[in-house]
Design a binder for these strands. Structure first.
Lengths: 196, 196
DNA sequence: CTCTAACTTTACATGGTGTCAAGTTGACAT
DNA sequence: ATGTCAACTTGACACCATGTAAAGTTAGAG
């Protein structure tokens, strides 16, 4: 097994991600992860103090593996505000499937665990930042609708692009990923771009 | 205390609702409910076999108390498709705050408990029906956008009007209820009504 | 050969749900 | 007055997941 050579920590993170990925974020226990990583449940706690920490480390791991920063930089190079909004929706929307499992597990923990709540909040802030930048680009072009303030526009964009909405359309309603992206691009443009 | 005279079952349902309401659906235990209803934790199980059943009974109780059916009938009497969409968004959107606590608790249970998942799904189907009717009214008027099928339009409307989106805007982003309704009416109209 | 870091095994505390069984209480019928 | 029944109480316990604690194993580096 080549997986035996990978450092334990990485093997744990990879296993965590895979289990959450195939199970769509449902009910993955510490013991399941340990089994998948071929170590004892207790050894997990030698690497991560608790479940919340393991999950947040997994999101960081995914960000690294997929070099999300590079993709974000690319989406920021769009010429006009409308193109930038489109690019942002596409970039983030296409990243959701990757992190969905871990995100769902973190969201579920959030209700009861303060640490998990803080961790998830942190990630949301990063996404909100992307939304805000897109709104600002629109505003700079004089293309932001007069129906709302920049802050409201950011709130709305963040809400439309939520992981839950992706889950609803992509998983529950069985839309294709392309259809989801397409629809979100339309929807956000209609909502935020001034019509003339 | 007048509450001593109310039949136990009703007192339980009322307590459940109140606890979930004030706590925004967070972490209400069976023992908390028992204490609030002034009975022992075990007596709860004489009235409801488990937590999922208690929660679903609470939603039905709320539907009854607020006579939601009557409100829905009213929203269906709108003349045009666009008016009907507007009325539906307003009716449902204004009902969300009432059921939010219970809904959140039920959604949280859904991840692990099959019975809770089925119960919540049942409720969603009822709401989906409202969305579908609104879309059909739009279609009948020839006002449904050509961008999507009736089914897709229903999926989208259901997603936009989700409890999670309400929570995001109303609680997390601190929007007023009026602003929420207003924005949702705009958003759904832009997305679903044919522009000419 | 020894020390140490990474791991294993076993055991146990905690906190919530749900089950079980034996007792209490008050109203109502006979 | 007595028995019965339903609604409740009390106390104990099984289950399951997280997290803690402690003692033992093992492989590699000095």
């Amino acid at each position: 097994m080549s997986s035996q050579n990978i450092p334990t920590r990485d093997r744990i993170l990879k296993s965590t991600w895979q289990l959450l990925e195939v199970g769509n974020g449902n009910a993955v226990r510490m013991s399941d992860i340990a089994k998948a990583a071929k170590i004892s449940r207790q050894a997990l706690y030698l690497h991560f103090p608790n479940r919340a920490d393991l999950l947040t480390a997994t999101t960081r791991y995914l960000d690294e593996v997929h070099d999300i920063d590079a993709k974000l930089v690319k989406s920021r190079s769009a010429a006009s505000g409308t193109e930038r909004l489109e690019a942002w929706v596409e970039t983030w929307g296409n990243y959701i499937p990757t992190i969905f499992g871990v995100a769902k597990a973190l969201m579920a923990m959030q209700e009861t665990d303060d640490e998990a709540a803080a961790a998830w909040n942190d990630r949301i802030l990063a996404i909100r930042d992307g939304c805000e930048k897109a709104v600002q680009a629109l505003k700079a072009d004089g293309k932001l609708t007069d129906n709302m303030s920049e802050e409201e526009a950011t709130d709305l964009l963040l809400t439309l692009l939520s992981v839950r909405n992706w889950e609803q359309l992509r998983i529950t309603c069985n839309w294709t990923q392309d259809r989801y992206i397409d629809m979100m691009q339309q929807l956000t443009a209609q909502a935020l771009v001034k019509s003339e």
